[in-house]
Amino acid sequence: MEVLLALSIGVMTASGVFLILRPRTFAVVLGLTLLAYAVNLFLFAMGRLQIGLPAVIDAQQSGYTDPLPQALVLTAIVIAFGMTAFLIVLAIKARSELGNDHVDGLHLAADEEEQRHHPR
């Protein structure tokens, strides 16, 4: 099971890294979101994998899962959402101000090119 999870995290990381190297902002935002998911899973896994052992104190329970990574990841998920939201708004604003959605603000996308020639 551990191998399976490690592989999944690896594939998510690879996809995220590839996406953040793309030249267009939307792909970069998706890449960062994907990378955030991978990082969250990775952090979570640092508490080792437990099945059927929630971190709720109960007299009948024999063992507990590690609550600390869970607490860290819980806030990380929310923060990642805040970051994604801010980034995507930044991307929108950049496209509107610069006229294109290149990460360096350089080239025009095909449909923007079209819009520029035939303004609706």
């Binding site: 551990e2 191998v3 999870l5 490690a6 592989l7 995290i9 690896g10 594939v11 990381t13 690879a14 996809s15 890294v17 590839f18 190297l21 991978a38 990775f42 896994a45 640092m46 508490g47 080792r48 994998l49 507990y64 590690d66 609550p67 600390l68």
Partner: peptide, 24 residues
């Protein structure tokens, strides 16, 4: 990308295959 993926996979597995003392 593939190098990062491999590195992360390896790292995760190295950690997950070991026991540890939790501070929890």
């Amino acid at each position: 990308a593939i190098a990062s993926g491999l590195a992360v996979t390896l790292l995760t597995l190295m950690v997950l295959s070991r026991d540890f003392d939790s501070i929890s």
